[in-house]
Structure formats: structure tokens, C-alpha cells
């Protein structure tokens, strides 16, 4: 059962800067939402208010109509998948142990078969379970990161610039794989990215953030056909321009 999310007047203030300037938003169960914006626009901060790595200054975040602050943060995080740019595999644990860590925290031991299954979900050889993270390429490491996020059978997948450090080919392949898993496992997925092309291709709904506010909330189709306003179109212009240049080269 996928999860739904509601943000109710959420603000976050650090000393002088306002990272979130009053966010009201509802995300339906089962949607794949991309949060796009420049660095410092508040998109990561907004994502982290969900798993309480960031506590809002004011306002509430509701997960399935329940205020996240009323729940135990660690217990709640174990039911969410979290993938982020720095990957953060535990260097002293083998790949299999890394994947099984979430269930282990609540006393469940994942079977070898299950770990193998999870590795296959992200297109990795099950034999990799016995390797150490340092023996893997960056792309392989982030695939393990995704497998780790899925190990606890989450309803909600949070991704913070998940493919930011990967080469373009890996990035494209893994992005497609994650979209595929989103559909297959019936997840609600939130992905923070600064890459509008990635957002347009993978998401059902694109939110554009600027200076702590949501300035556009559109489908990829609407953005592609010029909707969403100035900031959003500024971001859409980049891949559009690239595509046009490519087309010109083909002639």
C-alpha cells in the first residue's frame, strides 16, 4: 500500500535564511514526484522534513494523515527507503550486510535468497553480496544503495540527488530501473534533482522550487509545452536547447 503525504504550512528557518517559506502540498499515494530547483532552493530540506532528518520550524508533515512528529523517528525511517547522493554505504560491511542492515535493526535476518533478489532488482549479480563497497564502482555502489533502500519493503522512497555523482550512461540506466521498480512495487517516490531532463523523463509530477517556495507544480507534458512560469521554463530551456542542438547536428 503506497503512502500519501501532506505538507501543512511547513517552514524552516536557519539563523538568517529561510530554507522553506511556507509549503502547502499534497502528494497522492503511488505518484512519482520530482523536486527540481537550483542549489539552495530548499528542495533537499523539504525532502528531509519527511524522514525527520530536518525538523520544521513551524507547520506539520503528515504521512498517511498522521503527523510524522508523533511517531518514533527511527522506527519510521526503517519503513522508508532513503537514497542520497553521497551513497553512504558502510565501508566495514559487505554488500549483503549493507543491504540487510535495515531489517537487522529490528531483529530480522534477511535470507541470502532475498539479498540476491534485491541485488537482481538493481541489475547486480547476487554474488556481489560478499564484496566490500570499496571494491565496487560508483554506479554499482549506488545500485546497492537503492537495494538497501528497498530491503525493508517500504511504501515510500525518498531520493536526494540519487544519481548526481554518476556518469551519464549509468545515470540513465539506473533512473529507468528505479522508475520501473516504482511501478512494479507500487511505491510513492519523491526524488530531488537539479536535472530538469531527468525530472521530465522519470516523474509523473514536477515541482519547481525557488527560494523556499514551490513556484511551479505541473505534469512533465505541461512543462514541456511551456507551462509553469518563468523559473520553471528557465530550467526546461536547458535540455530543450541541448535537444535542438543535437537535432541540428543530425542534419
Amino acid at each position: 500500500m503506497a503512502a500519501s503525504l501532506t505538507f501543512d504550512s511547513v517552514t524552516k528557518r536557519y539563523d538568517t535564511t529561510e530554507a522553506l517559506a511556507g509549503i502547502d502540498l499534497t502528494i497522492e499515494a503511488g505518484s512519482f514526484v520530482a523536486l527540481v530547483g537550483a542549489s539552495g532552493s530548499g528542495k533537499s530540506t523539504l525532502l528531509k522534513t519527511i524522514n525527520r532528518l530536518v525538523e520544521p520550524t513551524t507547520g506539520r508533515v503528515l504521512l498517511d494523515d498522521e503527523d510524522v512528529t508523533t511517531r518514533d523517528a527511527t522506527a519510521m525511517r526503517r519503513q522508508m527507503g532513503y537514497v542520497f547522493q553521497r551513497i553512504g554505504l558502510f565501508p566495514h560491511m559487505r554488500v549483503g550486510e549493507n543491504i540487510a542492515i535495515g531489517p537487522r535493526l529490528v531483529g530480522d535476518n534477511l535470507s541470502r535468497e532475498r539479498i540476491g533478489e534485491l541485488l537482481e532488482l538493481v541489475d547486480l549479480d547476487p554474488a556481489m553480496a560478499s564484496r566490500l563497497p570499496e571494491e565496487l564502482s560508483g554506479g554499482q555502489q549506488q545500485r546497492v544503495g537503492v537495494a538497501r533502500a528497498l530491503a525493508g519493503d517500504p511504501d515510500l522512497l525518498l531520493m536526494d540527488e540519487p544519481f548526481g555523482a554518476l556518469d551519464p550512461v549509468t545515470r540513465d540506466a539506473l533512473g529507468t530501473r528505479v522508475r520501473d521498480l516504482h511501478d512494479r512495487l507500487e511505491l510513492t517516490t519523491l526524488m530531488v534533482t537539479h536535472d530538469m531532463a531527468e525530472a521530465l523523463i522519470l516523474a509523473d509530477r514536477v515541482l519547481v522550487m525557488d527560494a523556499g517556495k514551490i513556484v511551479a507544480d505541473e505534469t512533465p507534458q505541461a512543462l514541456a509545452s511551456g507551462g509553469g512560469g518563468e523559473v520553471a521554463q528557465g530550467l526546461v530551456a536547458v535540455p530543450r536547447h541541448q535537444a535542438e542542438r543535437l537535432k541540428e547536428l543530425e542534419r
Binding site: 524522514n51 532528518l53 523517528a73 525511517r77 551513497i87 553512504g88 558502510f90 565501508p91 535495515g102 538497501r148
Partner: peptide, 26 residues
């Protein structure tokens, strides 16, 4: 590595789990 600490929190480790499973061995 701050990434490792973020991951420890992200997968839902509590104070003691993070200390025992991640910080102490590293």
C-alpha cells in the same frame, strides 16, 4: 564520512545502534 552518518540515520539506527554498528567499528 558524513555520508556514512547520514546513511546510519537514514536507515533508522537509534543512538546505540549507530554507535555500535557504525561509529565504534570505524
Amino acid at each position: 564520512d558524513p555520508g556514512v552518518i547520514e546513511a546510519a540515520d537514514g536507515v533508522g539506527m537509534n543512538f546505540w545502534q549507530r554507535l555500535r554498528l557504525v561509529e565504534a567499528p570505524l
